[in-house]
Simulated scan of single mutants.
Amino acid sequence: MTPRRSAMALLEPLGLLLALLALWWAATHGQWVSKVFVPTPEATLESLLQGLGLAPGGGDAAGALARFSLATTGRMLAGWGLATLLGVLLGALIGGSATARAWLQPTLEFIRPLPASAVIPLAISIFGLSGGMVLAVVSFGAMWPVLLATVHGLASVHPRLREVAAALQLSRLAFAWKIGLPNALPDILAGMRLSMTVSLIVSVVGEMIASQEGLGQAILLAARAFHASELFAGIVLLGAIGFVSNALLALAEGRLLRWQRR
């Protein structure tokens, strides 16, 4: 890619973002929408900086958004890590056996479409309104992209590689570790990126329902109090967390899959 095309690839998304910000500014300052529900960009930025403790003012809420962001990020990462571990382990067990796939595929297809929010009442009855409940629901919702990606990656191993493994008398564990999982790595990494997004969404929903400290609870309380600028500041932070986490995973994916471009 030439430097000119690289610059254009960077400027085009930036131009779209600036256009959306300009539309937001015009809609609020032109009284197209009520500022009670949609604050100005300046008010949102002020609430964001005060909530992060980067600007004076804010009273007792100064720095609260930073604490809430850390809580939500920690909850998201814990659920995502547990979901990734369970997804890879179960996916390797199922994907490495044609018999297991034949028996379990219908059950997986039945459970997979269930939204994570649908199991929240069951999780509450088991764990109560606690952080453990949120972690369990996040892990359940975020596990499926990784599990199904792992199953697909192991099931799509080339038959010649299976013949080589049989000729070398590799055990199922050795086959999965040396052949299956490396072959499934691109699928697993793609599933992990999707799983990260799901874990952030479910973490916020769980915080709202279980009244756990985090951005979900902060956004809900701001909405109930009609503090539109604080509500939008929380939404901006959620977008930033999602963007940064996805960018870091994309960078890691690019490094881990460099061998594909050789």
Rank of each mutant, 00 (worst) to 15 (best):
residue 163 E to F: 03
residue 256 L to V: 04
residue 180 G to C: 11
residue 229 S to P: 02
residue 35 K to R: 15
residue 3 P to K: 10
residue 65 L to C: 02
residue 62 A to Q: 15
residue 75 R to F: 08
residue 226 F to S: 11
residue 132 G to C: 04
residue 154 L to C: 06
residue 247 A to H: 10
residue 60 D to Y: 11
residue 122 L to G: 02
residue 252 A to Y: 11
residue 260 Q to W: 00
residue 101 R to T: 04
residue 57 G to W: 09
residue 187 D to P: 00
residue 262 R to H: 12
residue 194 L to W: 03
residue 234 G to F: 07
residue 98 A to I: 09
residue 62 A to K: 14
residue 152 H to L: 11
residue 55 A to V: 04
residue 108 L to R: 05
residue 72 T to S: 15
residue 241 I to R: 11
residue 168 L to P: 00
residue 151 V to C: 08
residue 120 I to K: 06
residue 227 H to Q: 14
residue 29 H to E: 09
residue 154 L to D: 09
residue 120 I to P: 02
residue 223 A to F: 12
residue 61 A to C: 03
residue 251 L to R: 15
residue 203 S to G: 01
residue 11 L to W: 15
residue 216 G to T: 03
residue 8 M to F: 15
residue 61 A to P: 04
residue 99 T to H: 09
residue 76 M to W: 13
residue 180 G to D: 07
residue 116 A to T: 06
residue 198 V to A: 13
residue 127 F to T: 06
residue 90 L to S: 01
residue 114 L to T: 09
residue 2 T to C: 06
residue 135 L to E: 08
residue 218 A to W: 11
residue 39 P to Q: 07
residue 147 L to M: 13
residue 163 E to I: 03
residue 38 V to L: 14
residue 144 W to Q: 09
residue 13 P to A: 13
residue 149 A to N: 13
residue 92 A to D: 02
residue 245 S to I: 03
residue 67 R to Y: 08
residue 177 W to Q: 08
residue 169 Q to G: 07
residue 48 L to M: 14
residue 67 R to S: 11
residue 12 E to P: 00
residue 242 G to N: 01
residue 193 R to T: 02
residue 206 G to K: 10
residue 235 I to L: 13
residue 29 H to N: 08
residue 253 E to T: 12
residue 187 D to R: 05
residue 126 I to A: 14
residue 26 A to C: 13
residue 121 P to R: 07
residue 11 L to H: 12
residue 105 Q to L: 12
residue 251 L to A: 15
residue 203 S to W: 01
residue 30 G to E: 04
residue 164 V to K: 02
residue 141 G to N: 02
residue 247 A to Y: 08
residue 61 A to V: 08
residue 11 L to P: 14
residue 40 T to H: 12
residue 257 L to P: 08
residue 110 F to G: 00
residue 217 Q to C: 00
residue 110 F to M: 11
residue 205 V to I: 12
residue 77 L to A: 09
residue 52 L to V: 06
residue 54 L to A: 04
residue 20 L to A: 15
residue 114 L to H: 06
residue 106 P to M: 00
residue 152 H to R: 13
residue 214 G to F: 04
residue 40 T to L: 10
residue 1 M to Q: 15
residue 204 V to S: 03
residue 233 A to W: 05
residue 128 G to F: 05
residue 46 E to K: 12
residue 101 R to S: 08
residue 254 G to N: 12
residue 139 S to L: 11
residue 142 A to W: 03
residue 10 L to H: 15
residue 126 I to W: 14
residue 7 A to D: 12
residue 87 G to T: 02
residue 120 I to N: 02
residue 160 R to P: 00
residue 253 E to L: 06
residue 83 A to N: 01
residue 169 Q to V: 11
residue 92 A to G: 08
residue 10 L to E: 15
residue 86 L to D: 01
residue 199 S to C: 08
residue 45 L to W: 12
residue 59 G to W: 04
residue 98 A to C: 01
